[in-house]
Design a protein around this nucleic acid. Structure first.
Length: 544
RNA sequence: GCGCCCGUAGCUCAGUUGGAUAGAGCGUUAGAUUCCGGUUCUAAAGGCCGGGGGUUCGACUCCCUCCGGGCGCACCA
């Protein structure tokens, strides 16, 4: 419908405009129903270029507007020059039939079809369990991937990790210390070691499997680190699985060293005069790109900083042929990714294919106090603990509810208490209630007959139909902005319109024709809610 | 000091890429339901959209400035 309106408006514009103009024609749903079902501000935006008053332009547009009366009932000028459209009733009923026919595919659009995309998210190094701090990243990434899939894209979910480096070495040493302690030896955690109880669990497992055979091996015996990495990764996968997240690929940073792509990046930057040596280190000339200081790529110890593999990694993504690569980053990375983009540009890659989504941090409040988390010091609340308390649905919903750009205050006590008062129940309850009505109705009425949808004339019925029709637009919008909360806002409105309808219009006890028509409307509403919940990765229960 | 993000009802937050009279939930107050699930619905109260300038037909939205909060600014990731 949106593109239809844009089409006929453009045709009318071609007739009245002395010179060809092709503006972006914005069609929106007015806030108040008196302003119709769809509106455009086209006449106002054109006032400047056509040098005519907006209302005059609107009049001429309408005079030249060639529209299908089976779709549009009325076109009006309002306010300073808005053009308002009202949909024809029969068109509404036809579309309602389409929604039911589409079923679990309703809401899918083709704006991104044929495109290969990648979303990289979580990407936590395997030094400990996933915490609520990682939760926002994980859920946002997965849901953005789902939204893109619903707009037609082929999406890969990728987890990038580093199992070398200092943190992992300290992790291995920590396991070794616990291992020795469990065997009654005198051992101490290394400086800055990991204090969490899971370290001792891993050490215990090593004892179960190897006894004390590892006692007299070298302190840097890789078995400790490997055992830790395996156990922690298994734990992380399980947590993600519980949250309804399945990665397509885990990408190990180490492969970028093995295939020499790191060296290649440095060499290519040198060739462009963008890398040089100073004080025993290798520097990237970020001052060329407006930064105040140059940036170290390789430390004087010979070890690269994380920025270098980051550049190589993004080159790898682009060379794998993705049309779009989305990075989900916390606010702490905000200052670092411009370097990566600069490097990609300088080396001749199309950096517009990299889309960095930065979300603001989650502030944990525990016992009424801000709570500073640290994986190393074992001050954290894990996602598993949270899911044990409130379940995966509430967990996902909590992280998706708000716009990613604002801080999310996560009060542990409130989340636990939230339980039944949590807003996610409002959506799930609507779905369960519809299911229950439909089961009852199918016992009472013959559902074989085709419903006569034109019997849906009540204000609440029409409002619900129109709300259901907004679904594909809501998905497309949330997908474009990479903001899942926009879909939630929409779905709350669906549930609201449904409950109003439920309150105003009965089914059981009504004559069969009207009952059948209303059940069809329920079917479409249920489809919308179920599909929406599926995108959010939240269950759509039949009973609660 | 520099860069980025955020200030909207008592609280938590929306606000359709500059539009028509700024909305919802929770909380408060007053109501509805013999009947399909009361985890529901209706209504009221509650606002200088942090302050001040600017841009234009029109600003919560864009620009500047100030105030207040968060996060970055390493040869750490």
């Amino acid at each position: 419908m949106k593109s239809y309106l844009q089409n006929i408006l453009q045709n009318a514009l071609d007739k009245i405009s002395p010179e060809p103009v092709k503006p972006d024609i914005i069609i929106e749903k007015p806030r108040t129903p008196e302003h119709g079902d769809a509106a455009t501000n086209l006449a106002m935006t054109l006032a400047g270029t056509l040098r005519m008053p907006p209302r005059k332009i609107a009049e001429q547009l309408i005079e030249n507007l060639d529209y299908d009366a089976s779709k549009i009932k009325a076109v009006e000028i309002a306010g300073p020059g808005f053009i308002n459209f009202r949909y024809a009733d029969n068109w509404l009923f036809d579309q309602l039939g389409e929604v039911i026919k589409l079923g679990s595919d309703y809401g899918k659009t083709t704006g991104n079809s044929g495109k290969k995309m990648q979303v990289e998210f979580v990407s936590a190094n395997p030094t400990g369990p996933l915490t609520v701090g990682h939760g926002r990243n994980a859920v946002l990434g997965d849901t953005i991937a789902r939204l893109l899939e619903w707009t037609g894209a082929d999406v890969d979910r990728e987890y990038y990790f580093n199992n070398a480096g200092r943190q992992m070495r300290v992790l291995g040493e920590s396991v070794r210390a616990r291992y020795l302690q469990l065997l009654g030896e005198d051992a101490e955690l290394p400086e800055g070691g990991y204090e969490g109880a899971y370290i001792a669990d891993i050490a215990q497992k090593l004892i179960d499997e190897n006894g004390d055979k590892l006692k007299n091996t070298q302190p840097d015996n890789p078995q400790f680190k490997q055992a830790a990495e395996e156990a922690i990764f298994e734990d992380i996968r399980n947590t993600l699985d519980r949250m309804n997240i399945r990665m397509d690929q885990f990408f190990n940073e180490n492969t970028l060293y093995e295939d020499k792509s790191i060296d290649s990046v440095v060499q290519r930057l040198r060739d462009k005069g963008l890398a040089y040596d100073k004080d025993g280190a290798t520097w990237f000339k970020t001052t060329e790109f407006g930064k105040e200081k140059d940036t170290v790529l390789i430390k004087s110890t010979g070890e690269p900083t994380y920025r270098l593999p980051d550049i190589a990694y993004h080159i790898s993504k682009l060379e794998r042929g993705y049309d779009l690569c989305i990075d989900i980053f916390g606010a702490d990375h905000i200052a670092t990714y411009p370097d990566v983009v600069s490097a990609l540009k300088a080396l001749g890659y199309d950096s517009s294919k990299i889309d960095v989504q930065v979300y603001q941090f989650v502030t944990i409040v525990k016992d009424g106090q801000p709570f500073k988390m640290s994986t190393r010091k074992a001050n954290f609340v894990t996602l598993d603990e949270l899911m044990n308390e409130v379940g995966p649905d509430v967990t996902r919903f909590f992280f998706l509810m708000r716009t990613p750009g604002t801080h999310l205050e996560f009060d542990i006590a409130e989340a636990k208490e939230a339980g039944e008062k949590n807003p996610v129940f409002y959506l799930q309850y609507a779905h369960a209630r519809i299911h229950s009505i439909m089961v009852k109705a199918s016992e009472e009425y013959n559902m074989e007959q085709t419903p006569d949808l034109s019997l849906l004339t009540h204000e609440s019925e029409i409002a619900l139909i129109k709300q259901v029709f907004q679904f594909p637009d809501a998905i497309a919008l949330a997908s474009q902005h990479r903001e899942p909360h926009r879909l939630i806002t929409y779905m709350n409105e669906v549930a609201g319109h449904f409950h109003k309808f439920y309150h105003d219009c009965r089914i059981m006890g009504e004559d069969a024709p009207i009952a059948r028509a209303r059940i069809a409307l329920l079917q479409a509403t249920r489809t919308t809610l179920a599909n929406g919940l599926r995108i959010l990765g939240i269950s759509a229960p039949e009973k609660m």
